[in-house]
Amino acid sequence: MTDSLEPFNTGGKEARYAALLPRLRQHGIDVHVHTMRWWGDAPVPQVPAGTLHALCPRISLYAGSRRSIWQAVVFAASTLRMLGRRFDVLEADAIPFVQLFPLKLVTVVRRKRLVVTWHEVWGRDYWVDYLGPLGRVAAALERLAASLPDHVVAASTGTADRLVDLGVPRERLTAVPNGVDAAEIEAAVPAADAADVLCVGRLLANKNVDVLVDAVALLRERGRRVTATVIGTGPERERLAAQVERLGLGDQVRLLEPLEQRLDVLGAMKSARVLAFPTVREGFGMVALEALACGTPVVTTDHPDNHARHLIVPGVNGYVCGLGATALADALTQALDNADGLREGALATGRDNSWDALAATLAKVLVA
């Protein structure tokens, strides 16, 4: 149960489901994905994740730069259709978590287990920053929603710890972090148009790609010309394009639409010298892990809501820095100067995370 999946939309949770769900078949699990009608009036497409079923029409996930409250409410209401659909266990994506309330009703009525994958915990401070006074209500709902599942799958150990802080008992928690496909990484061919610094992901305010652009400008002032490629789309794209133009960085910073093939994204990671990941909110950091698996060191922030920082051992596979152009420019300088030496540490991090082993753990949770 998720409102978004590949190939219709890209992102960390979408990539996670695209990797894990097909592998569940190896453990005797028949996967049916209930989502929005992303395909419109066309015939239901076949996707590797499983058999698709529409719950409601496709509604934009975002209203401006924020997640759409209307979309969340409509999708949540549509999940009541599961009262009449067949399933043995219902696994739900926690985002945007409003749907967990009707889904709890569905599973109680149907006497089935509700397993929820929790990608990240926002908490009261972030909710208030995001929504203002209304954020206090949202934070209370998040805490209540976390109490609903029969079992919670946390996308990182950091998220698991924060769920315990919300009141989820440890015995109802299993950490199943994100992983990489070693064969897919091996098959990716480095891109011909290599950049010094690569940034990949949704162009949202919390990703702070504008800080990367400012850091490139600062390095230019210091006499160091650094090229950066940004791959992604989102509400911040026009503002970033204007920023690049205003700073006269058109020959150093490229903004590219999402690449259609994952191998092309991995190829871009392989060819870049450093991946910049200046986010302040990340439940795990799939992009960071994939870059490390490609042998590309990562620079990310030390913000407490950025769990990608736990993947980084400073000076071994990348660097962690404060949020700001100066701090990011300094960390990028270190990473670029030591990129070759950081490569082995990056590759070692990638080798420790296998999707096959993670799928086996998830399968045990689902059939318990």
Rank of each mutant, 00 (worst) to 15 (best):
V213R: 00
E260K: 11
A268G: 01
R246Q: 07
L240D: 06
D264K: 00
V216L: 03
E238V: 03
L212Y: 05
D214Q: 13
G201F: 09
R220I: 14
V197Y: 12
G248K: 01
A228N: 10
L204G: 04
D214F: 03
V197M: 03
Q252C: 07
E238R: 03
N206G: 05
V197C: 13
A272F: 12
N206E: 01
V211N: 00
R220N: 13
D193Q: 13
R225Q: 08
L247R: 10
R237M: 04
D264E: 07
P235N: 04
V230E: 03
V197E: 08
R222A: 15
R224P: 10
E245I: 01
A242G: 01
I231Y: 09
L259Q: 09
G234P: 06
R239Q: 02
V216A: 01
S271L: 13
Q261M: 02
V197Q: 08
E238L: 03
V230N: 13
D196P: 13
P258V: 10
L203Y: 03
M269G: 02
Q252R: 14
T229E: 07
P258A: 05
V274G: 10
T233V: 05
R262L: 11
R220F: 14
V253S: 08
R237S: 04
V197R: 01
T229G: 00
A242Y: 01
P258G: 05
V226E: 12
A215W: 04
R225L: 13
L198Y: 12
E238P: 00
G201H: 14
V274Y: 09
T233N: 02
E236Y: 04
L218G: 12
G201V: 11
R254A: 13
P258C: 10
Q243R: 11
R254E: 15
C199M: 14
L212H: 02
N208D: 04
P258F: 10
N208Q: 09
